[in-house]
Simulated assay, not measured.
Amino acid sequence: MTNIMVFVAASSLVALSAISSAAAEGDAALGQKAFQRCSACHSTTDQKKVGPGLGGVVGRTAGTMEGVRYSAAMKASGLVWDEATLDRFLAAPRDVVPKTTMTVSVPKPEDRQNIIAYLKSLTQ
């Protein structure tokens, strides 16, 4: 391979890495729109609805918000809501916490990443 071909190949890999990293981080503005499906049960503050308020959820231990009726499974889960845990939970809540009362999933990875970016923006 010539030096030019090696440089082009390396540059392409760096560009693809940057693109996939940005996609993995999500877009908070798109996440705010995607969150609309969640807003029937969740607020973006500490206000409780059917489910807990999600303001400040990133870093919170699952099942610990005062005044919320959590399932016994959620209280006992020991989960801390970080990006990876939120992604897995939003993809398949009952696979992560069997017997959770949350039944709605977010099947598209890009929607999950955007929602997570939005949730993170609520705590900054």
Score class of each variant (00 low, 15 high):
residue 1 M to T: 15
residue 3 N to I: 05
residue 5 M to N: 04
residue 5 M to P: 01
residue 6 V to I: 13
residue 7 F to L: 13
residue 7 F to H: 07
residue 8 V to I: 12
residue 11 S to N: 14
residue 12 S to T: 10
residue 13 L to Q: 08
residue 14 V to F: 12
residue 14 V to H: 06
residue 16 L to E: 05
residue 18 A to G: 10
residue 20 S to P: 00
residue 21 S to C: 02
residue 23 A to M: 06
residue 23 A to H: 01
residue 23 A to G: 00
residue 23 A to T: 01
residue 24 A to I: 00
residue 24 A to P: 00
residue 24 A to S: 11
residue 27 D to A: 00
residue 29 A to R: 03
residue 30 L to W: 00
residue 31 G to H: 01
residue 32 Q to Y: 02
residue 32 Q to F: 01
residue 32 Q to S: 08
residue 34 A to G: 02
residue 35 F to W: 04
residue 35 F to Q: 02
residue 36 Q to N: 13
residue 36 Q to L: 11
residue 36 Q to V: 14
residue 37 R to N: 14
residue 38 C to P: 04
residue 38 C to D: 03
residue 39 S to V: 09
residue 39 S to R: 06
residue 40 A to V: 15
residue 40 A to Y: 13
residue 41 C to F: 05
residue 41 C to A: 07
residue 41 C to E: 06
residue 42 H to P: 15
residue 42 H to D: 13
residue 43 S to A: 15
residue 44 T to E: 14
residue 45 T to K: 12
residue 46 D to I: 11
residue 46 D to Q: 13
residue 47 Q to F: 08
residue 47 Q to E: 14
residue 49 K to W: 02
residue 50 V to C: 02
residue 50 V to G: 03
residue 51 G to V: 14
residue 52 P to G: 04
residue 54 L to E: 05
residue 54 L to F: 11
residue 54 L to H: 06
residue 55 G to N: 15
residue 59 G to I: 09
residue 60 R to K: 14
residue 60 R to I: 09
residue 60 R to Y: 07
residue 62 A to D: 05
residue 63 G to F: 12
residue 63 G to Q: 14
residue 65 M to E: 13
residue 66 E to D: 14
residue 66 E to A: 13
residue 66 E to T: 13
residue 67 G to Q: 08
residue 67 G to S: 12
residue 68 V to E: 04
residue 69 R to V: 06
residue 69 R to A: 09
residue 70 Y to T: 04
residue 71 S to I: 05
residue 72 A to I: 14
residue 73 A to D: 05
residue 76 A to Y: 03
residue 76 A to R: 06
residue 79 L to I: 15
residue 79 L to A: 10
residue 81 W to F: 14
residue 82 D to K: 11
residue 83 E to F: 01
residue 85 T to G: 03
residue 86 L to A: 06
residue 86 L to E: 03
residue 87 D to E: 12
residue 88 R to E: 15
residue 89 F to W: 11
residue 90 L to S: 04
residue 90 L to N: 02
residue 90 L to W: 02
residue 93 P to I: 11
residue 94 R to M: 10
residue 95 D to S: 12
residue 96 V to M: 09
residue 96 V to S: 03
residue 97 V to L: 07
residue 100 T to M: 09
residue 102 M to H: 10
residue 103 T to H: 13
residue 103 T to R: 11
residue 104 V to C: 05
residue 104 V to T: 13
residue 105 S to I: 07
residue 105 S to D: 15
residue 109 P to S: 12
residue 109 P to I: 04
residue 109 P to K: 12
residue 109 P to A: 13
residue 110 E to Y: 02
residue 110 E to R: 03
residue 110 E to H: 04
residue 112 R to K: 06
residue 114 N to A: 10
residue 115 I to W: 00
residue 115 I to V: 10
residue 116 I to V: 06
residue 116 I to Q: 00
residue 117 A to M: 02
residue 121 S to Y: 02
residue 124 Q to G: 13
